[in-house]
Design a protein around this nucleic acid. Structure first.
Lengths: 340, 340
DNA sequence: TTTCAACACGACAACGTTGTAGTAACAGTG
DNA sequence: CACTGTTACTACAACGTTGTCGTGTTGAAA
């Protein structure tokens, strides 16, 4: 078992100083070509690679980004990580991932752990508990210490930092607008209760779209789901009583449930009913029929967040111009809406 | 902006030596209670936390595990990470995640990057390209340098190290056995090309199950998919030409594609066709009909891998007793097979 | 009064790296 | 022959931490 080789070992072997070895490997003109080539050959032979930890300590930068998210077993977050990872890698950074499991305490612990030297900055999405408690001291603390933070998706206005989100309201507007363009007049909405911020925004987008097309907003076409695990009944009730020709659902699960319940009572999708969902996950892609959805573009979101963070890390400009980037959404047309 | 405080700064402020501060904070008996409490109070006030990087350099251990997987946007891998993270965290370790994107080169680069000081060990699943090339020098290299590696799911026998897998062959056997128990005689197989090790094992399980029931293995009932993104055509061809009554698919995507293609040509699931998949992910749960699958238990797999790695890290026993752990699978019955 | 331990603390090396400053040896110039 | 400049190197400090060893000051036993 040959352990990792260090400058010191190479220096001893070749009977030169550590400095000479270091400089040779960095192609310094201070070193004669003779010595330089000799050292380089030796280093190559022993597969010398500078120790990252030592470099981190010396340079006071780790080239590592900390990611803290509520859950990884969630397609959206997985795509975001994927996006972050790709951009980070291209720019020479690694990512270290911590899961809060929607717990405030774990979010705080993870953050403090990584903040003590392990990472240069953070990309994070708030846990539910954190959003509920509205306690962001751990984030503020890290920012005060000079580490940049980028919040995405589940953000807060109580912390000043860079942010990346999608324009939920506009995205919902466009989805509904698309349905109107298909000549549907009576478009149902399956949404969440209003205190879920994104649900509210998407509902607003729905209402605005109808208003702009002079279509009356009818309350009986709107279902607000309280408990996501028991959405079947209210959706079935909507289908039975209103027999809508089109539905906009504010998430993937609601959309697929609409289709399932419709099938049960003999309503065919897309022939008798069109459905558009939100969040372009696995369900939308592989359910049968596949579902037309508003894609949140997690990968792009992650990529953008990574770029913002790294830019801030590399331009230690100290300019406090924090920005909030909006990621464009995209309507992914599939089988749950009629083909034009 | 108050930067992170170091021992040196505390020492200067309190006009004592760095050693004294360090010892005070570690409750050394060498230091008088007076000084000790004073230093501790000061450290607490300024929220002193030892710098991880410096500790890593000194102790030659990072308390960080490197994870290298082909893809993160894949439910199974996400659950594995989740399992690793949980166990690692409990044992005081962080995880740093790198994606190979199924590329051999990226796998090598990531590994070399992390191996130079960033992590104490690796948990990894091989990329397709690596499995195809059968080139594992990068893994062997890392092991030779004394870093433990745990392979999971997509493993190889060409490298000696700890491994965690499910008994793919047995799991496939049981799935096919279950179909035979439902009185199906002509069971089709949708699998991958043979160099994907798990695909091969599952194929073997299929064949063994048929053999044990004295059912002839008919090549025309076996489809080996080359490119996972274009699996529709070969599957449709199978359905058209053979009209099988039951299909065992070696992954979720193949299973759902079977159902979709069947629906297109008027074959109903489960009435006309039974389908069993592999990998219990979102697709299987939410597709319509939901799919009976072999559940891989990713979280348990990840947890076990993490435990094995950390145990080896902490008992630097140098005993070369590598083991391969088998994780139990489970057949999750859903709508794509007939109810008994 | 000498001797010796206990006490409370500081100096220093080490982990691996890089960059600055210093220093021999030698050649060229006046 | 003294000065200057170049070449080719080495020494050293620093990053933040810990642990070993050294040291000066007490107080008490001999």
């Amino acid at each position: 078992m040959k352990r990792k080789v260090t400058l010191k070992q190479i220096a001893k072997e070749l009977d030169v100083s550590i400095s000479t070895v270091s400089k040779s490997l960095r192609d310094s003109h201070e070193i004669s070509e003779d010595t330089r080539l000799k050292v380089q050959a030796f280093a190559k032979l022993y597969n010398y690679k500078p120790n990252n930890i030592a470099l981190s300590l010396k340079n006071k930068k780790t080239k590592t980004i900390g990611i803290i998210i509520p859950e990884i077993v969630h397609h959206f977050f997985a795509t975001v990580i994927s996006g972050i990872e790709q951009v980070a890698n291209e720019m020479g950074y690694n990512v270290i991932v911590c899961l809060s499991n929607e717990s405030f305490d774990k979010e705080v612990i993870n953050m403090e752990m990584l903040a003590t030297g392990s990472t240069d900055g953070f990309i994070m999405s708030l846990s539910k508990e954190t959003q509920q408690k509205k306690d962001f001291h751990h984030i503020q603390e890290v920012i005060n210490q000079g580490m940049p933070v980028v919040l995405f998706d589940r953000i807060t206005n109580d912390v000043l930092c860079d942010k990346v989100i999608i324009d939920d309201q506009m995205a919902a507007y466009e989805a509904v607008d698309y349905l109107v363009g298909l000549d549907f007049k009576e478009i149902a909405l399956v949404t969440t209760v209003d205190y879920v911020s994104v649900g509210k925004l998407r509902t607003d987008g729905y209402i605005n779209a109808l208003n702009d097309h002079n279509i009356p907003v009818r309350d009986e076409l709107i279902v607000k789901i309280e408990d996501i695990d028991h959405c079947e009944e209210p959706i079935a009730a909507l289908l039975e009583s209103q027999r809508p020709k089109a539905i906009f659902a504010v998430n993937e699960l609601f959309a697929v449930t609409c289709i399932k319940q419709a099938n049960k009572i003999g309503i065919r999708v897309p022939e008798d009913l069109s459905v558009i969902g939100f969040t372009d996950g696995i369900i939308s892609q592989y359910s049968s029929p596949s579902i037309t959805t508003v894609s949140q573009n997690g990968a792009r979101m992650g990529g953008k967040a990574a770029k913002m963070l790294i830019d801030r890390l590399e331009l230690d400009d100290e300019n406090e111009q924090y920005t909030t980037q909006l990621i464009e959404t995209e309507l992914v047309l599939r089988e749950s809406t009629p083909t034009l």
